[in-house]
Design a protein around this nucleic acid. Structure first.
Lengths: 235, 235
DNA sequence: CTATGTATGTGATTCAAATCACAAACGATA
DNA sequence: TATCGTTTGTGATTTGAATCACATACATAG
């Protein structure tokens, strides 16, 4: 973990990429920037550990991270995936240094802006409308995680797989002439941990979907959703 | 659903019971009160329907409600239980009338304050510090639901039951000379839907816990947690 | 108090996903 | 290119919760 001024900031306002700060004026951004630190994280590195005392807000400049919770014996659950412009840990901001209930691991090299809790508090005091924006952000996450809860708890396995694929598409998807494609950053194990099943079961269901030509593996990382609506109808 | 001035308000400030408004001065509260409507809900009534367009914030004055999501074929998942002072739907406040993704059903007769989205927006504009309070509230819910997600997704059935009992205790529990007691408002079916399993399985595990004297059924509604720490160690 | 419908406990059976097991494919490294 | 470790696909087996089935307890209304 290398603490320094990130290359983005050398030539501009890296925080302008970040959802909650987008609405600020240039002068306000410069104010905020004074409090922001920048770190780079290497692929595979875990930079937030479950149980750590929370004191920092992480704002993703670039890269992909997974939020994980681990159970007593080995099983992991991926809570969410976060990418450019997303913030991690905002809901610990107002607690009194409660420990994080998740770990965060980089799935790619990352550039991250960090804000200390006390600094973020100051910023919120100075710019009260930011508070509304964070409320919006958090609301979205809340709705997303409620959907996830429902999906993991009360749908069948095929629907879980479909849900995961749709989620991956909204985060990492784009359209091509061939159709919607996912640039999938997850291993089979991660996919399974996201959907709440074992690696083997995920493997089998993906094979089945490919055999039925609902999805197609373009290469190791890219998945074509041949029949995206068929997936959606499974939810 | 009977729309009128509630009895609480006839002799005071019912919203003073409500977490997010507690910090307001008496004058501020009177301002807010002008915008608040009051409704009474009967036990069993469903007053928010999944798919309804969101336009109202519900603030519970008294009573107990369950938030449910239903899957395509019959299975329900109880997202959370809400009681006095809790608010429902705050995270739809900032969306543009997105539909609710849950239904809300009263588990007891209830008194509820309602605030229209536009009025709540005005109130937040007038009292920006309320925004911080809501952020805190929402943060707590977020942490709770992440815990729930982990618990339902990656723990074994016994742990799910234990988790449910602990959750019920934090919401509906009190201490007696005999030990910690839950005043349980849920049917076996609701308990199962909360924990993410079937009624039969819940029934069996509760019987097992009672046989092992980890819990004891004092009467139809009250559960004594004979060995609360044994339950906690299962999580 | 009786009757009817709902809630609950519990046995028997089924079934789908977890687990176990292993071979093949792949990726990083020297 | 050869080697070692990791990831992945897939078969065989186990297992434990869901399902099915039903008797009993309970609540509510007449």
């Amino acid at each position: 973990m290398n603490q320094s001024v990130c290359s983005h900031c050398a030539h501009g306002l890296c925080i302008s990429k970040v959802s909650i700060f987008k609405q600020l004026s240039r002068d306000e951004m410069i104010d905020v920037l004074k409090k922001v630190h920048h770190i780079t994280i290497e692929k595979g590195e875990t930079f937030v550990h479950e149980g750590d005392q929370s004191s920092t807000l992480y704002i993703i400049n670039s890269g992909i991270a997974k939020l994980i919770r681990s159970s007593s014996l080995g099983k992991d659950q991926i809570i969410s995936l976060q990418t450019d412009g997303d913030i991690i840990g905002e809901y610990y901001l107002l607690s009194n240094f409660e420990p994080y209930n998740f770990s965060v691991t980089a799935l790619s090299d990352m550039k991250i802006c960090t804000l200390h809790k006390s600094d973020m508090d100051e910023i919120l005091d100075m710019h009260p409308h930011l508070c509304r924006t964070m409320l919006t952000e958090l609301s979205r996450k809340m709705i997303t995680i409620e959907n996830k809860l429902q999906n993991i708890a009360i749908t069948d396995t095929e629907a879980k797989v479909a849900y995961m694929l749709i989620q991956l598409y909204t985060k990492f998807g784009y359209t091509t002439e061939e159709g919607p494609v996912i640039d999938n950053p997850l291993s089979r194990e991660d996919m399974a941990n996201f959907a709440g099943m074992t690696r083997e079961t995920m493997s089998r269901y993906l094979s089945k979907l490919a055999k039925d030509d609902v999805i197609r593996f373009l290469d190791k990382k890219r998945i074509l959703l041949v029949q995206k609506n068929a997936l959606e109808s499974l939810l």
